[in-house]
Design a protein around this nucleic acid. Sequence first.
DNA 1: TAGATTGTTAATCGATTAACAATC
DNA 2: TAGATTGTTAATCGATTAACAATC
Lengths: 205, 205
Amino acid sequence: MNPNKIPDIIVGRLPIYLRALQRMADRGLKTTSSQELGEHVGISAAQIRKDISQFGEFGKQGTGYSIQFLMDNLREILKIDQIWDVIVVGAGDMGSALVHYQGFQNRGFRVVMIFDSDKSKVGKKIGEFVVEDIVNMLEKIKSLNIKLAMLTVPAVAAQEVADKLVVAGIKAILNYAPVSLNVPMNVKVQYIDPSVHLQRMTYYL
Amino acid sequence: MNPNKIPDIIVGRLPIYLRALQRMADRGLKTTSSQELGEHVGISAAQIRKDISQFGEFGKQGTGYSIQFLMDNLREILKIDQIWDVIVVGAGDMGSALVHYQGFQNRGFRVVMIFDSDKSKVGKKIGEFVVEDIVNMLEKIKSLNIKLAMLTVPAVAAQEVADKLVVAGIKAILNYAPVSLNVPMNVKVQYIDPSVHLQRMTYYL
DNA sequence: TAGATTGTTAATCGATTAACAATC
DNA sequence: TAGATTGTTAATCGATTAACAATC
């Protein structure tokens, strides 16, 4: 359908490049090469050049890439040349950790609300936020036009909550619940399951 | 070198299959098919059959797979037919959430210790554990023969701590710090970075 | 037996790597 | 200019899918 469609696997590497570039910039470096960047992230120089060249010509022969210029462009490509509001659903320990998480700063995201269905949690403070009742979630998401959610509810509730998020207009879910979610094709899901990640490594032990 | 080497990408899917099978078992189901399992996890039936067949013949023509039998075999393949002790390094909010996390139960892991370098955190209780001083980490890891660690320290400290973990004999690191780690080839690393995962979705919005 | 579903082969599709002309 | 490094092409490598004989 779209001949210029970029493979998911390439898009998935861009945030890694961006993260490494940010660290180089923090150290005061001005330029880098596909070779050097590749060593930092553990990816071949050829692949990095190929990935980046899908989106334009951001380097210069002989000198490499301007770190700031490449960062600006990657941010624009990833649409994080803006701050996205994100909600957290599930006010357990993981939800609480995400509310307090410092790692969203300067990376395109900001937590704006946390919800739970447990009446004993609703109204309590977590960080600077008061836990909201999940019954008001649809309305709040719509009124604030929020597109991103992080889901930290128990596995048994996850699909049901995901359905509500989709109805409310959420377009991307970072799912911490240990289940695969069924969502419409136009809604993206990324999975974080510490047990799954550990199990991917024990095979090799 | 090893002609029977299984690609990482296949190993990476096994925990997803196992998780879905566990849920089926919890619902009282006894058998499933590659078709049905595929619908649950969003992977084609052909691929599931091919993946599973790399390790043996666990199904029966006409009837599919015994859920319990396949689970037992996947657990054995992934070496989680045992409980692995895991340490947490970094006693911030994320480390604390991992100590309290219920999702390791019955999935092959158990947190046994948490470390931090911050003297104001050392000695405090988190869950059932007392935060240990990182200066004693090498000795403790060795004496308990621990192979798995979850790393939740700040980005600037991550590589240094990872180096210590490697020296202590850790063979697999679940890294929550937003940096790529350099480790020897025989040490596995998996990355969890909420910002990176979110950035992989904003591209499509 | 008839129907269903596996395990496997061959074909297709997609991703990575190597190499180098272009050029800063 | 000489050296370095990009962007891109072609070759290689690897993963996915389709199809079906085997067989429960």
